[in-house]
Computed example of a mutant assay.
Amino acid sequence: MTRTLQVAPSNTEQARAWDGDEGAYWAEHADQFDLALRGYRTPFFEAAAIGPADHVLDIGCGTGEITREAARRAPAGRALGVDLSAAMLRSARRRAAAEGLANAEFEQADAQIHPFAEREFDLAVSRTGTMFFADRAAAFRNIARAVRPGGRLVQLVWQPPSRNDWFLALTAGMAAGRDLPAPPPQAPGPFALSDPDRVRPLLAGAGFADVACEPLTAPMHFGAGADDAYHFVTGLLGWMLTDLDDTGRERALADLRATLRAHETPDGVLYPSATWLITASRT
C-alpha cells in the first residue's frame, strides 16, 4: 500500500522541490554529489564515533551514502535514512541492497513532524541536510525526542557564503552581471545554519547541550574536468537562466565555463569550501 507523505505545511515548498525535479536531478547524479563532499567524510565520521550496536538516524539522507556507512559501522545496530525525495530514496535502497546492507533502512518522511519512536536512536546525523527546514526549532525538537538521553547529534552545515568560494564563483558566473539579492538569513536553504550564535540557542532550546561548532575546510569537487563540471553545474543551476534573453544566457554560460576552467586541476575541478561540524548531546 502506498503511503501519502505527511509534510508540515511550512515545508510544502521544500517537499515540492525535493520530491520533484530537484530531487530527481540529485538522484541521477548521486555519485557526483557524494564526490563533491568527500573531503568532509573523515572528520564527519570521526565526530559521529558510531558504535557497533548503535541505532543511527540520518536526516536528509539523499541517496544514502551516509546511511550506508553508518550501517557498516553498526553491524549489530541499524541505520535509518529519511528524506523528502522518493527518487533519491529509490536510489538509496538499490545501493544498500547491492551492498548487502540489511540493517540500512530508508523512509520518505518530513523529519520536522515525523512520529519517530521516542528515544529510539543513539545518534542523529546529517550531512548538509538540516538547513532546509522551514521551522528549525520544531524540527530539532522532534529530532531530540527521537534521540535517547545521552545520545548525540552530529551535523555538517555550510559556513556563510562569504567563506564558500564555490557558491560565490558559480552563482556569479550564472548571474550574467545581474545583482541578485541574497536570500533572507532565516529562510530555508544552504546557509540557514551558518551562524553559530543562532545555532547554539536553537539546539539548546530543542533539548541538546554541549553544542560545539568546529570550522572545517575542504575542496569541493565538481567534475573530472571543465566540460564534465559544466554539464553538472548547468543542470544544477539552470534555473538561474530562465529569465535571461539569448545574449544574457550566452554571457552566463561563457562566464561559467571561464570559472570552471580557472579551477581545473589534475584532481578535477576544485573550489574552496567551508563548513561547520556541529556536535551536541541530548539532555
Rank of each mutant, 00 (worst) to 15 (best):
A36P: 05
A36K: 14
A36C: 13
L37C: 04
L37R: 04
L37G: 13
R38D: 14
R38Y: 00
R38A: 13
R38W: 12
G39F: 05
Y40L: 07
R41S: 07
R41Q: 07
R41M: 08
R41K: 02
T42F: 11
P43A: 00
P43I: 05
P43G: 07
P43F: 05
P43Q: 00
P43H: 00
F44I: 06
F44P: 06
F44A: 09
F45D: 08
E46H: 02
A47N: 05
A47Y: 01
A48T: 00
A48S: 14
A48D: 08
A49Y: 01
A49L: 01
I50L: 09
I50F: 01
I50V: 14
G51H: 07
G51C: 06
G51W: 02
P52R: 12
A53W: 04
A53N: 13
A53M: 12
A53R: 15
D54T: 12
D54M: 03
H55N: 15
H55E: 15
H55K: 15
V56F: 11
V56C: 09
L57N: 14
D58N: 04
D58K: 09
D58I: 01
D58W: 02
I59M: 11
G60L: 09
G60P: 14
C61I: 02
G62Y: 08
G62E: 09
G62W: 02
G62K: 11
T63Q: 07
T63Y: 00
G64S: 07
G64C: 06
G64N: 00
G64Y: 00
G64V: 01
E65Q: 10
E65V: 12
E65S: 06
I66F: 13
I66D: 11
I66M: 14
I66V: 15
I66Q: 09
T67L: 12
T67H: 09
T67F: 13
T67C: 15
T67S: 15
E69I: 11
E69Y: 02
E69P: 08
E69C: 05
A70P: 01
A70T: 03
A70M: 01
A70I: 04
A71T: 10
A71P: 01
A71W: 09
A71Y: 07
R72M: 05
R73L: 15
R73C: 01
R73K: 10
A74M: 11
A74T: 12
A74R: 06
A74I: 00
P75T: 00
P75F: 04
P75W: 09
A76C: 07
A76W: 13
G77C: 03
G77I: 08
G77E: 05
R78F: 10
R78W: 13
A79R: 04
A79K: 06
A79S: 14
L80T: 13
G81I: 01
G81Q: 07
G81W: 07
V82D: 09
V82M: 04
V82R: 06
V82H: 11
D83C: 06
D83K: 03
D83G: 02
D83F: 00
D83M: 05
L84S: 10
L84G: 05
L84A: 05
L84P: 01
A86L: 13
A86K: 13
A86I: 00
A86F: 11
A87Y: 14
L89F: 10
L89W: 01
L89M: 07
L89N: 08
L89V: 02
L89G: 03
L89Y: 03
L89A: 04
L89D: 06
L89S: 04
